[in-house]
Design a protein around this nucleic acid. Structure first.
Lengths: 218, 218
DNA sequence: AATCTTTTTGAGTAAATACTTTAGAACTAA
DNA sequence: TTAGTTCTAAAGTATTTACTCAAAAAGATT
């Protein structure tokens, strides 16, 4: 692996474990047994590392794995895939989401890229819910849709932060992931039509089982 | 005003304006034209200041203004009062909520007090929703209630953070507050019974008007 | 082998930061 | 008035932190 990539991987690891604030460029270099000068040969500064992490990894994870609405994919599966993509990014780059407002305030370029991704997510999520409505699986007022999408994004974005405020040094494992998915399901349940309710309850049952399983393994 | 109080007030102001991370004890002292030594006479360190802000101000704002369920207060008004208390605290101590996971991770005593307050809020909010259900104004599965309460707290806690990630250097005014209230109303609408829907829609209408008014003033 | 380019080292620095210490001023109560 | 207590100033210091730079090592090209 190239030094540049090693720096990025080590940074993600250390940031997640110790918090971005507590990890200095010198720490990262020491962790990799390279010199600070070497690190600064590859990155202009610490912000540049964070920006690169988002730009080269998180951004792509979010956008590429996002399911497109298409005839081949059933609407409900699309939602499942969506949750997978979002929560996966959330777990892998948790240092980022746990400190989101501070990091974005400090780095306008990062904010710009973040807002751009969020805009795309909003669009795709809206398409997705509209597809579910067209398939008579969900029902909601047209005027409510933007707010529902907003709340779903809010839950996604801050689920891990919320979890961490409640649970002291709790290990981050799959149960946290499934716990987040279950919250999303609670949120959308009232909008599920009778005809789709069986499908919905089956999906919820599956995630509850996975949640309990992950809990017992931890 | 005593020096100790001046330090607390100035800290709240500077933390909110510039972010806790960017405000040092020396900055606070300089802002007040006192010496660093003076500041350290009143507080052991910066964490001690943050802890005192939460303990002496935010905590009490949250707990004291929280409406108790009582025969004199109509259930729906209780929810309105609840939202007022929570969002008011959110605005006044926004530096705290915008950086919540990091601050709590760094300071276990703070976390303990925070979790304690959250526990009380969960209890009161549960009482409140139960009262609304008993008054036939809301309907929900008993098993769903804890999750609904959780999501409401999540929206409350991170509404401002979410807002800030979306809107660059946007001024924090009343429209942000009302925007948060409206999100809460979207969240609970599906659980409102037919008999209470008129009351609910009237409340929503009022908050929408206030929201638009605050927006046009900004 | 010689030359050029890329990568890496490691010692080093300037600035920032959290915090200390000593001494004296101001207030308080007998 | 005096003795005790509380408060404040001023001048620090030890550490951390982000970042630099000259020179050497490693790699590529001809």
């Amino acid at each position: 692996m190239k030094t540049r990539d090693k720096i990025i991987q080590a940074s993600i690891e250390l940031f997640n474990k110790q918090g971005e604030r507590n990890v200095t460029t010198n720490h990262i270099a020491a962790h990799l047994n390279i010199s600070p000068g070497n690190l600064y040969y590859h990155f202009r500064n610490k912000e540049d590392i964070i920006l690169s992490i988002y730009e080269e990894y998180a951004r792509n994870l979010l956008l590429d794995t996002f399911p497109k609405v298409s005839p081949e994919i059933k609407p409900f599966d699309a939602v499942i895939l969506y949750m997978d993509a979002v929560f996966q990014a959330l777990m892998k780059f948790r240092f980022f989401y746990v400190n989101l407002p501070v990091l974005l305030a400090k780095n306008p370029v990062l904010r710009e890229k973040y807002v751009e991704v969020q805009y795309t997510i909003t669009e795709r999520l809206t398409e997705m819910l509209n597809a579910l409505r067209d398939a008579d699986m969900m029902i909601f007022d047209e005027e409510e849709l933007p707010d529902i999408v907003s709340i779903l994004r809010l839950i996604n974005t801050f689920w891990l932060s919320f979890y961490q405020t409640q649970n002291e040094n709790a290990e981050i494992n799959d149960s946290v992931f499934y716990g987040g998915v279950l919250k999303i399901l609670v949120m959308i349940r009232p909008y599920i039509t009778d005809s789709a309710m069986d499908d919905f309850l089956a999906a919820r049952k599956m995630y509850r089982e996975r949640y309990n399983e992950a809990l017992s393994l931890a």
